[in-house]
Design a protein around this nucleic acid. Structure first.
Lengths: 253, 253
DNA sequence: GGTTGACCCTCACGCGACGTGAGGCCTCAC
DNA sequence: GTGAGGCCTCACGTCGCGTGAGGGTCAACC
């Protein structure tokens, strides 16, 4: 900290804002520098910088400048602002996590070849947002952060890679349909081979052990539209796939 | 979904936006409803709703409407948008987590009676932000989410509660200073009693086992300003406190 | 002590993303 | 057929700055 306080430019650089922004905050009385030089230069001291810090957090949280002014000029103890901002920021982080989960749900649907209804897609932006959804991904995926793994592994994938995966998935589905039609029984050697092949496909994205494999397939075959996709390949396929995967998982338990 | 598509109001309610917003998106060509009734009513179909979903995510991420239009009208495959939005949202979530960590750092400093410099406070908003900071809290606090615990426990605290804690902390510090001046040796019975009392204070906020106690004290007594606070009570107190806590932690290892 | 370049000042207009009516038509249930 | 609620199109207002314009200041170096 310079001995006589910060100039506009100096403080602006520190805070990652423009000089114009500090001018504006001065104009509207939100952050008036505690001193000016004889020639009219603004000088900000440590208390000004502290106030600016609070302002920037509240602004980031979406408060209007007059709301921020009202908050900061209220008779609250400084630590109250820290606690308030901590609470609001954690809420915001959780909200963003919900958006992430919602996107994962869409991606999952897309990769499974099913379409979400507009209601499902827009649910998260709607008014009464059910917090039960918040934990849905956890329940579905178990403890591990499968999606983080998936994202990590597919970060550098090109469109061609994705298309290849889609092709392989389609091929896998056909293989399953053929086996089902041919009368392969869940628990048989051939069925277990197919279950492992199916699990191997999932492992392109994340580490799926047998318990997780059971969970994922249980979830997807419970979805009407996913069932529709499998049923269109061969009626009864989705229930059969579930049975195959469960028998295989039991054998590895 | 209504058979003939959504009206403005219907879609607006679903998406948690105002009718005016949809009108605006129509005006600027960002989201033009696929149909109109004979009397001029806007009708949005599922594809429109899907486009709106993408728009809302991008908008939430801070893109301008024309940027969003450019993105959506580019020749990208739909899944690319999902992947892009997933990546941007996780980055955003991590950024908010950094803000949370920064506030925790401020709270911690405040409760320890030390003041951060403006540089330290504003660092997170500055230009070149060191991602090493991102993991600082983890290293300091270990595996457990101590701050979440702390927040949980202190959620309903009143200002009086906080003042009481401050008083108790000050009293604790004086007790420590007296023992130090009286020549109490680290590792002695009395010193271990004091270490446990100090740990008990921390337990008002979160579960601190002996390893964590060692970590927290090691960190704080490494900070110049924290040392200054302790040194002003009694020269040598901070190093002594660290020795006392480490001896106690060793004995419980 | 003059010049140069980076800073600082005060107007003042512009803009993006809607908010907020105004004035009027449509639809549907009673 | 009538009232309530929803829809339409203007059109001006607002908020948080961006972006110059025109001009003074400061520190350094010639």
């Amino acid at each position: 900290m310079p001995e006589d306080g910060y100039t506009v430019g100096g403080l602006a650089r520190l805070a990652g804002v423009t000089v114009r922004t500090l001018h504006h905050y001065d104009d509207v009385g939100l952050l008036v520098p505690s001193r000016r030089t004889a020639t009219g230069y603004r000088l900000y001291d440590a208390a000004d910088a502290d106030r600016l810090t609070r302002i920037l957090y509240y602004r980031d949280l979406g408060f209007g400048l007059d709301d921020v002014a009202a908050l900061l000029d209220g008779d609250t103890d400084p630590a109250d602002h820290l606690r308030t901002q901590h609470r609001l920021l954690t809420e915001r982080r959780d909200r963003v996590q919900e958006l992430v989960t919602a996107i994962e749900r869409e991606l999952e649907a897309h990769m499974s070849g099913i379409r979400l209804t507009p209601e499902e897609q827009l649910e998260i932006f709607g008014e009464r947002w059910d917090p039960a959804y918040r934990t849905e991904a956890e329940e579905r995926w178990g403890d591990t952060d499968a999606w983080a793994q998936s994202q990590e592994r597919t970060r550098s994938w090109t469109k061609a890679d994705w298309e290849q995966v889609k092709e392989r998935t389609d091929a896998m589905d056909e293989l399953l349909a053929e086996a089902f039609v041919a009368g392969v029984q869940p628990g048989s050697v051939r069925a277990d081979e197919l279950a492992e092949a199916h699990r191997a496909e999932l492992n392109r994205f994340y580490d799926a052990d047998h318990a997780m494999h059971r969970g994922v397939v249980g979830f997807t075959t419970g979805d009407e539209r996913f069932r529709a996709r499998y049923e269109s390949l061969a009626p009864g396929l989705s229930d059969w796939l579930r049975a195959v995967v469960e028998a295989n998982a039991d054998r590895h338990a």
